[in-house]
Design a binder for these strands. Structure first.
Lengths: 309, 309
DNA sequence: ACGTCCGGTCTGTCCAACACAAATATGAAG
DNA sequence: CTTCATATTTGTGTTGGACAGACCGGACGT
């Protein structure tokens, strides 16, 4: 139990773990192996990390998410890493970023909340819910995450965007629907420590539009509880969402554990930036790499279901 | 990096951390100090925890959230802990629990989701939004938390209730309102590590009904960010929600830090089960011990504001 | 040219044992 | 009953080491 006075500019190891999502063990290991980070010590001999080092760690974390390996990037100076990042990603993303997204981002950074809200609302009117999610909500969520990372948005501005978008999406969830077809009953959730709820919500709305019976449990559900809930609600499919930041080992390990615990006829669908990087998924797990595929997958399930009946 | 074969019924330490939210370090420390948990070892000498021990750990975790200390409860056998759990709060709460709440709880435990949803919906119709929140949503949130604690509801059932209620409440947030009176601009959020969003949502809806301009940042906002956001959005009031489980020291310390960082004319309103137990609140902090007081407080603010103009 | 197998290197997570500040309980004195 | 000082409890930090599995690059066969 060692909370103590903030040291102004330098933060303790637990705070670094929270901010960078790099575990304490790994931070100490890097220090031993690569000589970075090289935190100073406080009056009790505990590590405290200066702001600049934390910034570099964030950069490293982001590059690792893109596939770079620690040994190659940790020894390099900050500016070289920045170049790597802009070389790999900025071009691609800014290129496809529509004017609309850019305008909406500006509304966020200028704190014009009500204008943001009405701009989004009118997009829903124009495009319809389905295209709104695919062409506005999803790209914007990605753009906001990237802008936060590049320091163009404060974390609280990202939070605010999340809230506004959540309010909009929730309006279309959880309403009773009746369809002639057999509706797959889909249980939606995320693993523990996953904080991002937006991806899940977008999926929920899209699935509901296809006539699926969605039961969302929100974020952070222990695996054992997922198993109980599947049994209790007689779900046909479990849909899991993983954000970019979710540790690869955790996600693939967790998915395998879940696959083993569930009966084979229960399908597992996974999606989000956090699964794109996983190389080997277990058998009998569906990767949804594009929200636009949801209708096709639900149709496939219905066909399979009719056939086996 | 040590993913390896699951041993069927026993799980490695990382999985226990994920499932119980007790850190690896703490698990090892308890083993040394109290002799529990006593995991067996796999072929590599790593700890693997049998299912029964994980269940006891979950129980311990719940009791600690209610204020029990590890040293007192860890040595006790499983059944004794179960008794502690059911004995602690049962009397008081069942006494003034209305039939309606009891019925709704039954719908949750029997997994009749769509019926729960329509039952709630019709309550909104009957009572109006304001009375619905005060007389149904708030007491139910408390009842569900208690039922979970007593083991009558699984955690996934509490999650599901939260999602359903959130969907309902979100429908009334974030809509543009225009009032003649000067609307206080209210920033809503919680401190880091606070997971409960429902209280905040209920407050948001009630405040919005009084014509306040609510800007909700969702949960888990660092204090420094709150300060920046107040400046950016020129908020008049910061409203914070604390759930029962929130550590007392963190809340009172955090509130004091926030009070020091904000200009004196910015009001701080705090509420929720987590502040009821705090003895000394700093000067110039409003405690909202009842949701029903919100209209009066907003009226007070308007009067004060008119006067000082 | 392309796929596949195989050694060597890289890397994160686990282990042990200990240290100690802060939180909490306990008991004494006003 | 409150207040203050002292004792106990408890989580998080420390060092240093081990090693399984992921990853890379070269050799080989088709």
């Amino acid at each position: 139990m060692k909370p103590r006075e903030e040291i102004g500019i330098a933060i303790p190891i637990s705070a670094v773990e929270r901010e960078t999502a790099i575990s304490k063990d790994t931070l100490r290991m890097w220090e031993r192996r690569y000589g970075f980070p090289g935190p100073t010590r406080d009056q009790f001999g505990d590590r405290i990390y200066p702001h600049a080092q934390v910034e570099k760690l964030r950069l490293i974390r982001r590059l690792m998410d893109k596939g770079y390996r620690p040994g190659k990037i940790i020894p390099q100076p900050y500016h070289a890493l920045l170049e790597l990042l802009s070389g790999s990603q900025l071009l691609h993303d800014n290129f496809n970023q529509s004017d609309l997204i850019t305008d909406l981002l500006r509304l966020i950074s200028e704190h014009r909340v009500s204008e943001l809200r009405s701009a989004l609302q009118s997009q829903v009117q124009n495009l319809g819910l389905r295209r709104f999610i695919l062409e506005v909500a999803a790209p914007m969520t990605r753009a906001v995450g990237d802008a936060w990372f590049r320091g163009e948005l404060a974390i609280f501005e990202e939070h605010l965007f999340t809230e506004v978008m959540q309010s909009m999406l929730r309006k279309w969830t959880g309403e009773a629907r009746s369809t002639e077809q057999r509706a797959p009953r889909i249980l939606l959730t995320t693993f523990p420590n996953e904080q991002h709820a937006l991806g899940l919500l977008m999926v929920e709305v899209l699935m509901a539009m296809e006539g699926a019976e969605c039961i969302s449990f929100g974020i952070q559900m222990p695996i054992a509880d997922i198993v109980s809930a599947v049994a209790a609600h007689q779900a046909d499919i479990v849909a899991l969402s993983f954000s970019q930041a979710y540790p690869r080992t955790r996600s693939s390990e967790g998915i395998m554990e879940l696959r083993r615990a569930l009966q084979p006829h229960i399908e597992i669908w996974v999606g989000g930036g956090g699964v794109a990087r996983i190389k080997r998924l277990p058998e009998k797990v569906m990767e949804m790499n594009d929200l636009a595929n949801i209708p096709a997958e639900i149709a496939r399930w219905r066909q399979k279901s009719d056939f086996s009946r």
